[in-house]
Amino acid sequence: MKEDINFERLYYENYNIVVRICLGYLKGNESLAQDLAQEVFVKVWESLGGFKGNSKLSTWIYRITVNTCLLELRKKKYTSDKNIEDIAEINNTEVDARKENQLKKLHGCIQHLSVEKKALILLEMEDVPQKEIADILGLSHEVVRTRIHRIKNNLKKCILNGNI
């Protein structure tokens, strides 16, 4: 299996998503997110021979990403007070201040979610199909749909009222 996969291509196709998922877990600590992304791809390379093909390769990579982030959180009990502005770097100067403020509020609200809810919404925000999210997290598709719907409603309330 390992010989059939172009690892360099796999890395470049998935690296940005892996980093963004890590950023969501690590409260915007970009250097640690990049370090963990590298760790994820080391694990992917080392375990590639054991990939059974029961799911898409990207699903498997995202599962490794979530597990790696959770392990890091347990190891370090990560509690950085990183400013949300570091998470929400917005390079598009045409985006008005209101949208920028809402994005900051969104990321701030996401930081208050439980680890599982954070995994759900971060994968949803990356446009990972909900069936694939279910596979990644070991949940039924119906449970994922329901929880994402509830999380979105809670995030809307948080953004509008400032509490989750």
Rank of each mutant, 00 (worst) to 15 (best):
L48Q: 09
H112R: 15
A134F: 05
L36D: 03
E132T: 06
K105I: 04
N92W: 11
N92E: 13
D81T: 04
D81I: 03
N29L: 04
L155N: 10
L26M: 09
K131Q: 13
D35W: 03
E126G: 01
L137A: 02
S47M: 06
L32Q: 09
I133Y: 01
L137K: 04
K82Q: 09
L137G: 02
E89T: 14
R74S: 10
G162M: 07
I159D: 08
S114C: 12
N163G: 09
Y62F: 15
A134T: 04
L26N: 03
R145D: 02
G162W: 08
R145E: 08
P129K: 07
Q38E: 12
Y78L: 13
T79A: 09
A134E: 11
L70Q: 12
Y78G: 03
Q38W: 10
D127T: 07
R74H: 11
I87W: 01
Y62L: 13
A97C: 08
E72R: 07
N92D: 14
K82T: 11
K152L: 05
D96F: 05
K105C: 09
S55C: 07
Q38F: 10
L57A: 02
V44R: 01
E39D: 15
A88C: 14
L106V: 14
G28L: 02
F41E: 07
W45R: 10
L70T: 14
N54M: 08
D96A: 03
H149L: 14
G53C: 04
I159H: 01
T93L: 15
L122D: 00
K105D: 04
L113I: 08
S80V: 11
T93S: 13
E126C: 08
C158M: 10
I64D: 03
L103H: 08
N153T: 13
G108C: 07
I90M: 14
L155D: 07
E142N: 11
V128S: 01
D81Q: 11
E132W: 03
N101F: 14
G50V: 06
C109H: 05
N83C: 12
L48S: 05
K99E: 12
L73I: 11
A88Y: 07
N54V: 13
C69A: 15
H107S: 10
E85H: 10
E126V: 01
I164Y: 05
K118G: 02
L36G: 02
C69H: 02
L71K: 15
D135R: 01
Q102N: 12
C158I: 12
I148Y: 00
K105E: 11
K117N: 15
L155Q: 04
P129H: 07
S58N: 10
S31A: 05
K104S: 01
E46H: 02
L106P: 07
K157T: 15
F41R: 02
N29T: 05
A37F: 05
Q34D: 05
I110D: 00
F51R: 02
L123D: 00
I110R: 03
I136M: 01
L120G: 03
I110M: 09
K157H: 12
A134G: 04
